[in-house]
Design a protein around this nucleic acid. Sequence first.
DNA 1: ATAGCCTTGAGC
DNA 2: GCTCAAGGCTAT
Length: 458
Amino acid sequence: MELRPDDLEDMCPVCGDKVSGYHYGLLTCESCKGFFKRTVQNNKTYVCAEYQECRIDKTQRRRCPFCRFQKCLHVGMRLEAVRADRMRGGRNKFGPMYKRDRALKQQRKALFQRGGVRSESTPPLISSDWALTEGLYPVSILHSAPLPTLQSPFISLQPPSLSPLLTPISPAAPLHHNNPLSNWTLKSKPPSTSSPSSAAGLMSDPLNPSPCRYRTPQLVLQLQQEGPDELQLQEKVSAHFLKEKAAGGEQWTPTTFSLMCIMADQTLLHIVEWARTSTFLRRLRVSDQMKLLQSCWCNLLLLDVVCRQVLYGREGRLLLVTGQEIELSDISSSSCPIMAGLVLRGQELIRRLLIMQVDHAEFTCIRFLILFNPDVPQLEDHQFISSVQEQVEGALLEYTLSSPSHLLERFSHLLLCVSELRSLSALTDDYLYGKHLSGEMHCNNLLLEMLHAKHDQD
DNA sequence: ATAGCCTTGAGC
DNA sequence: GCTCAAGGCTAT
C-alpha cells in the first residue's frame, strides 16, 4: 500500500511529528528545527550509546541526540541555513527553493484530487514534443524546478572551455578545512549515512526507512558534503533551457539527441565546477586537474546518469537531469544499434546497482575513485593522486564492511561495476566522437572540447 | 536539554 | 504591508 504524497508531506522526515514549516532546507517539525539549531549553533557533539542506528520517532527522539542529528543530516537539513551571525528575520537563499517545492506539492495535490495520477501514462518525450511532465513521481525538492517546454531554436552557445574554468584556482586548502562538519564532528563518533535518497537533500520516508548503514568514515561524510548539488544542477539546466526558449522563436525543433547533448554539456559544466572546488582536486596544479578531468569526464557523466536512475529513477524510464522522464523503449527504438546496445548495458548496470542498493555515500566514493585515477599518463603529482585513490578506496571498503551485511563481496562488486562503467564510457566516448565526425553535433561546447582533448591525443 | 511560542526583518 | 523562516525566550 503506497502512501499518498500529502500523508508524508505533513510529517517531519526526522521524527514523524507534525510539520510546522520549512526549516533549514526542508519541511520539519518545530522540535527538530530547534534541535538542529541548538546542535549547530553550539557545536554540540553527541555520542551514541548504542550502535548509531537508533530509531528516531516522536516518542524516542530525545533518547539519542547523536542518531537524531545524523537523521537530520540524512534527510537533508542544511547546516549552512543556520546563521553564523545569528541574525534574525529576513530571508535566506533557500527561499526560492521553498517556493518551488510548495508549488510542486500543490501541483501534485491537484493531480491527486483530479484522480489523475499519471504514473502509468506519462507521454513519451520525444523529439520536440517535450511535454510538461507535471506528474513526476519523486517526493523531492530535487525534482521541483519548473520544467521548460522546448520549442525554441537552438541559439549558439557561449563556448565554455575547460581551462578558464579551472584557472581561478583557490589556494590549496588543507584537508578537513572549510568543512562545516569538521569543527565539531571530528571528536564525535563517525556518523552514519543511510538512505540512498537522503544525503542529496531528499525527503526520506519515515515509515519505510531504507537499509541502515552505520559507521560512515569521516572522509566519506566530508566528500558527501562537497556535493555535487543535484538541486543546483537541475535548476541550472532547467534555467538554461528556459533561456534557450526565451531566446528563440517557435520554429526550432531540436532532436532528442541534441537535447541530450545540451543536457550532457550542462551537466559536464556542473561536474567540472564540482571537481574544481573539491578539497582534493584544488590541491593539484591546473595541468593535473585538466589531465584527470579530460580522462574521466565521460565516466563522470555516465556515473551521473546511472546514479540518478539508481537513487531516484523508475524502471523502464530514463530520469533526466531536468527531472523529466523518457521511456527507454523510445530511445532504443529510435536509435542506432550502438546506442541501443549502450542503453541495454546501461540498464543492466543500473539493475545490478539497484539490487545492491548502492547508496549516495557509495556513489560519492565512486565519483572520487573515477576522478583520481593514478593511471592517467604524465601526471605531475602522481603520488598525491595515488594517495587520494587509496584513501577513498579504504573509506569505501570500511563503509561497505560496516553495512549490516558486512560482506567483503560488496566492495569488489562495486569495483566491478566501476569497471563496467568505464567500459561503457569508452563506448559512449567513441559513439559521440563518431557523431561529431559525421557532423551531427552542431554545437560548440565543453562536451566537444572534452571529446577533442581525448581523441587528439590518440 | 527540549519544544512550544514569540520576535524579527528581507524579499515579495 | 504581509509572509514566513530565521533566531530568541522560557516553562517544563
